[in-house]
Design a protein around this nucleic acid. Structure first.
Lengths: 205, 205
DNA sequence: TGTACATCAGTGAACGCGCGTTCACTGATGTAC
DNA sequence: TGTACATCAGTGAACGCGCGTTCACTGATGTAC
């Protein structure tokens, strides 16, 4: 599909890639449309052949991010195999892995200030990602004694919040940068304690 | 102390207040030094009588935020009374309460992209806030059977991450805005489950 | 109490800059005959 | 196979704008005598 004769052939994706690199290097605040164009070897005006403007470009980056994010969590979840618990823990790990391996996507999705509803494709992708985590939580919740089983959406949100907090505070140069624990340790142990609190892990594990 | 004869008398704090209002209304990205000056009824150049520049103004806002934050958590912690557990839970609630009641300070502290080390006063204030939470965690951890007691700094970080995640994702118009739970419910229940996982709350509570 | 003077907070005009966006254009590519 | 033409991706110059910052200044306040 990519043609390399110079009409660039694939400028749309080249601009997305340039945006990713800029955000990864300088944060979502540092990104400018003009820089992205320059990095793609093209005039700023050329961007408007492929995107409605700056906002639209960021939205596409975020959309692709949510697609990858959903895929990655889906893969980690693995249909709930071998057990609901193991699958759920893997999904949690996938969250952090995504944030670290896609340092351009994650900020575009969560720190760029973009509205998820501005763009239907973006909204759909974000919804799908949320859905994966929710499904993992639902299946897991069936193993909790029905009497004191919290709504699955609630503890999906707990895990999401804990993961996001770890990413924001400890996986970058942010406030809590200090400390002997890696973000991975922190998230893994946090989820472990939390699941024990739900009665899903034996107290002596 | 404030003189109301027109040399303004208290422009420094007026600028801080203007910054707070702008950030609360438009987010940390929307803030400009010029707008803050205008809101304070003053020329942009006047700002430089009191601050080294834009960065320095934001740093002062963040510093004041951390001082209030630390005070609030300290007050909630209440020296560990009546019990370590109750005091700890109150401290967690204070986190969210601060984020909601000081919607200008919180973003300046955690979303403005400011470096906590650029300014020694700021670094000190941030350190104090961290210290309060850590102390609460330490005292609480003494109630955990020594054998499987995780480092206090680890579970202080867990609570910090969970709280921050709830604020970022659910206490604003952000991604997870939907759902039947208030942020307060979410954080309270999350901390509850977590503490049960630590063996600090009886399983049938 | 009154005058002369130093201080210094705030003014107003100007700056250079880089941003996002527009517009008429050009020139390579693909298609019709 | 070759020529004529339509398409449309990218150019280059220009725009208006608002930003953070600077500078020489002014004028109110406080102090010394």
């Amino acid at each position: 599909m990519p043609k390399q004769g110079y009409h660039h052939g694939n400028l749309r994706q080249a601009l997305v890639d340039a945006t990713l690199r800029l955000i990864a290097e300088q944060g979502p605040r540092g990104f400018t449309l003009s820089d992205a164009a320059k990095l793609a070897g093209v005039t700023p005006a050329a961007v408007y052949r492929h995107f409605a403007g700056r906002e639209d470009l960021i939205a596409e980056v975020a959309r692709q991010g949510f697609e990858i994010f959903a895929d990655l969590m889906e893969h980690a979840y693995n249909g709930g195999k071998p057990t609901a618990l193991v699958a759920f823990e893997a999904t949690g790990r996938a969250y952090l892995a995504f944030a670290r391996k896609f340092p351009g996507h994650y900020p575009a999705m969560f720190e760029s200030g973009i509205s998820l509803n501005a763009n239907p494709d973006l909204a759909r992708a974000a919804e799908r990602a949320r859905g994966v985590l929710l499904r993992a939580a639902q299946q897991l919740s069936e193993h909790i004694p029905a009497g004191r089983r919290p709504p699955a959406s609630m503890f999906a949100n707990h895990i999401w919040a804990l993961s996001h907090g770890v990413v924001e505070l400890f996986a970058r140069g942010a406030p809590g940068t200090r400390g002997p624990f890696t973000p991975e340790d922190l998230l893994e142990s946090g989820i472990g304690i939390y699941l024990r609190g739900l009665g899903l892990v034996p107290p002596d594990a």
